[in-house]
């Protein structure tokens, strides 16, 4: 294997594994910038993965190659519906954010596997017929060296994720909506005094995280897992949350951190093909993303500052 094809392998594997993390971490930034801690991202990804696989299996014949894309949208909508539970509990019903998020994480695998059993009478779905597959950018792939590494047989969804991250940054820091969302996460009392509807903006943040988290789960299921079972999503939601913290609650930063964690995750898969890494026992590569998450948090959290009212309930005085 020459070094161009080796780099191409690393880059494309990193992109494939990062994409679900990028979407979900972006969702996390919207929720937490609005002041709602969303540990439930993991559960939302589970529901997204589940619904996309069901949609894919059911409609693959009807929609053909467009199926995974439509399924991702459906998963986003399911994510929104599911995140409503978290939104209602934390915004209106004054629940503790972490307990409510944990309820989401307990409920999602139970509900999805229950539904799989109720629909298919077995604990695991069949493999999907249509997945995201690989994409070659016409023209760009012809560029020497860079072309084969970045633009040939790569993940189109990853590039969309990067564009979405840029849009998310623009929305959060350059628009009226973003300013108001951040204000209810920093100081809801002051925002309320200025006539901003705190509850509405917090809902917007949580539901956006549901939409993006659902898409994240759908991408994982349709580009990596290929089917749905209770073991499909194992910690990707939590890693996304860590990526968001590592990225200092900033969409661009979260994207960068997600790419880093994606790289760490992909190593345990492609490591066997890389000289030098293939001799490391697989367990080290398996636990690496999780250990790295901890190390990164320890080293960088001190410098990162969460939105001031993150994790607190806002009780409007009458």
């Amino acid at each position: 294997m020459n070094w161009v094809s080796m780099l191409a392998l690393i880059v494309s594997a990193t992109l494939v594994y990062s994409t679900p993390l990028i979407f979900t971490a972006l969702g996390g930034t919207f929720s937490e910038r609005g002041g709602i801690v969303n540990v439930g991202l993991e559960g939302i990804m589970v529901m997204g993965a589940f619904s996309s696989v069901i949609f894919n299996l059911t409609f693959a014949d009807t929609f053909g190659a467009a199926t995974p894309w439509l399924a991702a949208l459906v998963a986003g909508v399911v994510g929104v519906v599911f995140s409503c539970i978290h939104a209602v509990a934390t915004i209106n019903f004054r629940a503790d954010h972490i307990i409510s998020g944990t309820v989401i994480n307990l409920l999602a695998p139970a509900l999805s596997v229950f539904l799989v059993k109720a629909i298919y009478a077995k604990g695991q779905t069949d493999n999907i017929a249509q997945n995201f597959g690989y994409f070659t950018f016409p023209g760009l792939a012809k560029i020497p060296v860079l072309g084969p590494i970045f633009f040939k047989d790569t993940s189109l969804m990853a590039y969309i994720a990067i564009v979405v991250a840029l849009i998310a940054y623009w929305v959060m820091f350059k628009t009226k909506f973003g300013l108001r969302l951040r204000s209810v996460g920093e100081n809801p009392q002051a925002a309320d005094t200025l006539g901003i509807n705190v509850y509405r903006y917090r809902y917007a943040g949580v539901l956006l995280s549901g939409f993006l988290g659902g898409i994240g789960g759908a991408i994982f299921a349709q580009s990596i897992a290929g089917n749905f079972s209770v073991g499909t999503i194992v910690g990707q939601g939590y890693i996304s949350m860590a990526a968001m913290i590592f990225g200092k609650w900033n969409p661009i930063g979260a994207m960068g951190a997600a790419l880093f964690f994606g790289f760490a995750q992909s190593l345990s898969i492609i490591g066997a093909q890389l000289p030098g890494i293939s001799s490391i026992p697989s367990v080290y590569l398996q636990v690496a993303p999780y250990i790295l998450t901890i190390v990164v948090l320890v080293l960088f959290l001190g410098k990162a500052v969460a939105p001031k009212a993150d994790g607190t309930n806002y009780i409007k005085s009458k």
Partner: peptide
């Protein structure tokens, strides 16, 4: 399916949380 048990448990904790 057994999973209904975990749905019940998650729901109970949800109501405790609110």
């Amino acid at each position: 399916p057994f999973e209904i048990v975990n749905i019940v448990i998650a729901s109970i904790i949800f109501f405790v949380a609110i």
